[in-house]
Every structure is written in structure tokens, then in C-alpha cells.
Amino acid sequence: MKKFTTPLILLIFLFLGFSGNAQEKKNFASIQNILYEIVPNDKIDSWVLVYNSYGKNQEVKTSGGKKEYTPQFSGFNLFPSEDSFYYIAYAAGGKMNYVTDLEGLKKFIGKIDNVEEAAIAMTIDGYLIDEEFKDIAGNYYEDRSNYYLDMGKLTSKECPYQKTHYTLTINKSTGAVSQVKDNGTYIELYNKKCANNPRLLKIEKKEEPKDGAKKTTKKK
């Protein structure tokens, strides 16, 4: 009986170890590396991912041989920036085409092939990979059936400015989001113009007793 029990216990621990490793969270790499993992689903002869920063083009990835293309003056960005953007130039059916917005990017990707494409799809739907807070809004893990993405979302541009983080469950087969878990606010910023700024409210409360004390002294 002992000879049978020992191997069984070892197998259980090995199974638990593999399960734990399968669910270990990994931080997403840079936005550029995420875009590097795009796998287009349509029949495309060749394509190039171009990064434009301050008017200068840099070819990030080339697939299927280099073709002549026209530099673009606008594009998409998964993490908005006024000074830079990406675009894709691709050849299909003997014609050059360009992806310069998020909807075009979604169509270009087609079916979700990997966790990076899942993150891109969620970004197009309004979520974001927060590169400053990757531990709570820029990581993922996966199992055989799903991708589990921790991403952020800008939930208020008013006072206070705030971001909320979510866990998104995405089915690997269909690419559909089966669950969205709200993990709460992780950034809440007030400025001096905010009427509901806690610091201003505290200052006002401190000033009230002083006014009351002055009035009492005058009565005496």
C-alpha cells in the first residue's frame, strides 16, 4: 500500500505545480512588442508595421518581403500620444493597402490568434495596457480555454480623473469576452479646480472653527 501511495502523492504535487505555473501572471511587453505579434488572417502577400515618431518612420516589422509603399501621415496608437503613431502597409491581390485606424487594425487582425491580439482587441474596445502600472493593469495568464487579461480603463475625465482596472476573460476559440470583473479604481487624481477635492474640503473644515471662535470673542 505504501509503494502505491507515494507515487500517487508525487503525481498530485506535480499536477498542482503545473496548474500553478499555467496560471502565473506575466506582464505585457511594450506596445511595440505587442503589435509585433500580429498574425493577419486574410490572404496577404506582404506587410510592414511602421512606427512614426516626430515625423520619422521606423519599420518595426516586415513580413513576406519588402514592397514599395507610400508613407502615411496619420495612424493608430494603443496608448495615445500626440507625437507618435503606427500604421500598416500591406500588399494583397497586387494592390497596396493601409491600416491607419483602430477599426482597420481590428479587421486586419481578424480572428484572435494569441494573447497579444486579445489585448489589442480589448484596447480597441476602450481598455488599455497601463505601462506605468503593469502589475494591476498590464498583465495576463492563460489556460487551455481562455486568456485572462488585467487591463485598465479611463472611467472619468472629470473631477476626479480616474482609472479602473478589470480582469477580462476571453475565450480562445471564439475570441468572445465571457466575463468582465471590476477590480476597482487604482488611480484617482484631483486638481485645484475640483470642487470635490478632499484637500480643499479638509481646509474648509479647518477654517470654519476659526471663524466661529472669532465670532464668540466679539460677543464677549
Results as ranks from 00 to 15, higher is better:
M151Q: 03
N196H: 09
Y148S: 11
P80V: 03
L102A: 04
S84Q: 11
D182M: 05
K157G: 09
I109H: 02
L102R: 06
T169Y: 00
G93S: 08
Y166E: 00
Q72G: 03
Y190T: 07
P71Q: 09
F133T: 10
F108C: 07
T167F: 10
D130P: 06
L128V: 07
S156V: 12
S173C: 00
I109T: 02
F85E: 08
L168W: 14
N139S: 10
V180A: 10
K95L: 01
Y87A: 15
L78S: 11
V177C: 02
I109L: 05
A89C: 12
S156F: 08
A119D: 13
V99H: 06
S173D: 10
Y147F: 11
T185R: 15
T185H: 11
D135H: 09
S145G: 11
K67A: 13
T70K: 11
E158Q: 12
G75L: 05
L149D: 04
L105N: 05
K181N: 11
G64P: 04
A119P: 08
N77S: 08
A121Q: 14
N146E: 10
Y190V: 09
T100Y: 03
D113L: 03
Y141C: 01
V180I: 13
A118S: 05
S173R: 04
P198H: 08
N77K: 07
S74Q: 00
F108H: 07
T167Y: 07
I187E: 13
N197I: 00
T70E: 12
G110Y: 00
S173I: 00
N146A: 06
K67I: 05
L105I: 02
C159H: 03
F133P: 02
N77T: 07
T100W: 02
T100M: 04
G175T: 02
G184V: 03
G152M: 09
V115R: 03
K134I: 02
V180T: 13
D150A: 07
Y141K: 03
A89V: 10
K95A: 01
Y69L: 14
M122D: 05
Y90Q: 13
K67Y: 08
K157R: 12
T169E: 08
K107L: 14
A119E: 12
C159P: 00
K163F: 09
Y190L: 12
V99P: 04
K106P: 08
